[in-house]
Amino acid sequence: MSQQLLANCNGLCLAAIILLVGGIALASNQIDIDEDLRHLIGRCHRDQASDGDYNDCMKQVFNDLRAYFPTGVPAYNIKPFDPHHASFVELRRGDPHGPGSFKLILRNVSEYGWTRSEVTKFHSDVEDQRIVYAQYFPQKSLEGEYEFAAKMLGTQMKRQGHWNLTLYDYSQTTSVRRVGAPGSLLKVHVEVDRIGGMELHIGNLLQGQPLNQLADGVINSMWQVGLPFVRPMINELVSTAFTDIFNESFRHFPLEKFVNQS
Rank of each mutant, 00 (worst) to 15 (best):
E111H: 10
R251C: 06
I17M: 11
S124L: 13
Y54R: 13
H85V: 07
T240R: 15
R43D: 10
Y133C: 02
P70S: 03
R92P: 08
A25K: 07
D128Q: 11
P232S: 10
C44W: 02
V73Y: 04
D128L: 07
H84A: 04
K140P: 00
I245E: 00
D244V: 14
S262A: 11
P96N: 01
L37A: 09
N164P: 00
Y170W: 11
H85S: 08
H84T: 08
M157I: 15
V179C: 06
S221M: 14
P99H: 08
G183W: 05
F242S: 08
G161C: 03
H189S: 06
D34N: 14
G180T: 07
R38A: 15
D169I: 03
V176R: 00
G100R: 09
G196Q: 02
N77H: 15
H189Q: 12
G203N: 01
G94I: 13
Q209Y: 14
P83T: 13
K103E: 07
L167G: 06
R116S: 11
V238W: 12
W163L: 06
G100A: 13
E236G: 01
I105D: 12
V230W: 15
A67W: 13
R178T: 01
D36C: 12
T115R: 13
F69G: 11
Y54D: 02
C57Y: 05
A75N: 00
A149N: 08
N235E: 04
P70L: 05
L65M: 12
L205R: 03
Q48P: 00
T173N: 04
K79Y: 07
K121V: 12
G208E: 00
L5G: 03
P182T: 04
F69W: 11
V230Q: 04
R46G: 01
P83Q: 09
K59G: 01
I219C: 05
F88M: 15
M1C: 02
F242H: 11
N63P: 11
F88L: 10
W223F: 06
F81D: 05
L104D: 04
R159D: 09
V192N: 07
V73C: 07
